[in-house]
């Protein structure tokens, strides 16, 4: 298993290939549906005026995300009353919903990777080649286990999006993932989609 710590260099990313098991450490930021939509509309396509603390959060995110990784995750968090936050359960959510946004977000913030589950499509794969970045697949549903790799919650932005949709800044130690989309155009998801399609066609013809 390869040990990788954020921030990650382009060379490290280029070395990664589909199938590599990685133990990821360092600072990460969670972001899912509401966050991606907000990023695209407010800062990338600028179809929406920044409101409230938007610009302030944006400045922080630019620093946090540069060379780092965004995690598609809506955690269960304790300590909401006292603000002594702790991740209780924190597995990945389905990534494909961010397909319209991910490549642009990756390039805009110089992300070196995305952690999620279920894989992503052609647009994101192209984004991985160009940025460069990779898709790290975490094990869906392994929430208690993954939460134990979250050693510290540094803070939270946009809590008004709701606990699952907020931007949580976390530190992880040896978070287990598998590279399923690399920066050379390789995608395990495209391979399995095609091979299973062929078998499906045979089954339907029976």
């Amino acid at each position: 298993m390869k040990q990788i710590t954020t921030p990650i260099t382009d060379d490290v990313i280029r070395d990664l290939k589909v199938g590599d098991a990685v133990a990821l450490s360092g600072m990460l930021v969670t972001g899912r549906d509401a966050v991606h939509k907000w990023m695209i509309e407010t800062f990338i396509k600028k179809t929406r005026e920044p409101q409230g603390d938007d610009l302030q959060v944006y400045e922080e995110l630019k620093k946090l995300l540069n060379g780092s990784v965004i995690y598609h995750c809506g955690p269960v968090v304790s300590g909401l009353d006292t603000k002594e936050y702790k991740f209780v359960a924190a597995g990945p959510t389905t990534s494909i919903r961010e397909e319209p946004y991910q490549a642009d977000v990756m390039k805009h913030f110089n992300l070196k990777g995305v952690i999620g589950k279920g894989g992503m499509g052609a647009k994101t794969l192209k984004g991985c080649e160009e940025t460069p970045a990779v898709y790290f697949h975490a094990i869906g549903g392994a929430a208690s286990y993954i939460a134990q790799t979250v050693t510290k919650v540094h803070g939270v932005f946009k809590l008004d999006f709701g606990v699952p949709e907020a931007i949580w800044v976390i530190e992880v130690k040896e978070f287990p993932v598998v590279v399923t989309m690399d920066s050379h155009g390789g995608s395990q998801h495209a391979v399995i989609e095609a091979s299973s399609k062929k078998i499906l066609e045979d089954l339907l013809a029976r």
Partner: peptide, 8 residues
């Protein structure tokens, strides 16, 4: 006694 999956 923690959730198996964070999506309860």
């Amino acid at each position: 006694s923690t959730p198996i999956c964070q999506d309860t």
